[in-house]
Design a binder for these strands. Structure first.
Lengths: 228, 228
DNA sequence: ACCTGAACACCGTTCAAGT
DNA sequence: ACCTGAACACCGTTCAAGT
């Protein structure tokens, strides 16, 4: 019996790059990066592992394609009437939320240097930097600083495996970290101990945004200094 | 014949956590992260894979320990007479160079959230932030911004697999990227195309430092704003 | 053209057996 | 206490064979 006929019987669509990437995203979001296996993916798609290789060259491309889909969906769509500062903050927050919802892109974004997903982010950041009035030679540095900061936070979020959904686990987690920090060697970790207390009512999102604002302030300061 | 006697005959030291971590660093530096295998590591140590598990709980701990050794060696040792700005820049540069020499710590640093290596960096950055005169409640944000930026750049350096040692390959690589950027869709990638030319004489280290300066400028601006 | 699934060449990790 | 190395349970990827 032909494959097509069997699929039709089970009311399944034929295999396609798009369906494969979609299924991969589903697995990544639910089971995490370590859970994405060609065998698991093949099972979910009701086929064998080899079939996937007809549509996708390997795991790297698959992860890249998955990242591209998610990033493309979050990078665009800013408010047209917003100021450059507001637009930058909004873009950064959209990326933060995307990484929060799909922690694996935090790892993946950093791994695709000149690749499409990172370039998409860089492009949008660069446009805002330009709109901020940064002179041409300083734009690359400003956009890169924003990008690298976002990538850094993204990597942290991915590493922290934000899997602990509930708010309770969240505060529990922060309490544990705060307690650990407070118990560090007083001489070796004087600063860390000193700020440990602040960690208990810590809002990742707000903290992320505060970092963006710091860089934006630096951009503004450098720009104004040049003018005078 | 006892193991000890055999080792003595071959003039080998006995296995130890320290020797294992040292050997792992050697492999990581030469063959890269993918080249570090328990079988390869065991061969280099003239033993079986299982022996390593007596001294180290697993691969994660091994990578963590290797990162800790390298980071501990680079985080300390700043000039005592330097200003906080200079000290911050020097610390950041030391980290940049360490990541450049051992690209794998770029990946690894990001993966150890509350772990020792990251905390060591955070602590040193925090001390400089404090020395910069940043008020207490703003210190955490400032230190985090610096840290996340450094982690972001580190991840990029690791991804770019700076393996291409020679200077020639370096400029060749930049030329290729610049050419790729210049050929992007003019509407979709207007900004990236515009800055592509700057990429040809691009100094990673200087660019990294410029980003640090941007954040330092932001920190100074925020601090002074609060004062007035 | 597209799919199947056994097979290959690897992993990290375990563990009975040795010294 | 420490080491050995075969064995286990996985990987990503390939490929002859099918439809």
């Amino acid at each position: 019996m032909a494959t097509r006929a069997r699929r039709a019987e089970r009311r399944e669509e034929p295999l396609s790059r798009e369906r494969i990437v979609e299924a991969a995203i589903g697995i990544l979001d639910t089971v995490g990066e370590a859970g994405l296996t060609f065998r698991v993916l093949a099972e979910r798609l009701a086929t064998g592992p080899g079939a996937i290789y007809w549509h996708v060259s390997g795991k790297d491309e698959l992860l890249g394609a998955a990242t591209e889909v998610v990033v493309a969906g979050t990078v665009l769509g800013g408010d047209a009437g917003a100021s450059p500062q507001e637009a930058t903050r909004a873009l950064a927050l959209r990326l933060f939320d995307a990484i929060d919802a799909h922690p694996w892109i935090g790892t993946q974004l950093a791994r695709s240097p000149g690749q499409s997903p990172m370039l998409q982010v860089f492009e949008q950041l660069g446009r805002q930097v330009q709109a901020l009035g940064v002179p041409r030679p300083a734009r690359f540095t400003a956009a890169s600083a924003l990008l690298n900061y976002i990538l850094g936070v993204g990597g942290q979020n991915a590493a922290n495996a934000h899997g602990q959904e509930s708010e309770k686990n969240r505060t529990e987690f922060l309490d544990t970290v705060a307690a650990t920090w407070a118990s560090l060697d007083p001489e070796e970790y004087a600063f860390t101990r000193d700020v440990a207390e602040q960690l208990r009512d810590h809002d990742d999102r707000a903290e992320f945004l505060a970092g963006i604002d710091l860089i934006l302030a630096g951009i503004a300061a450098s720009r104004d200094e040049r003018r005078s």
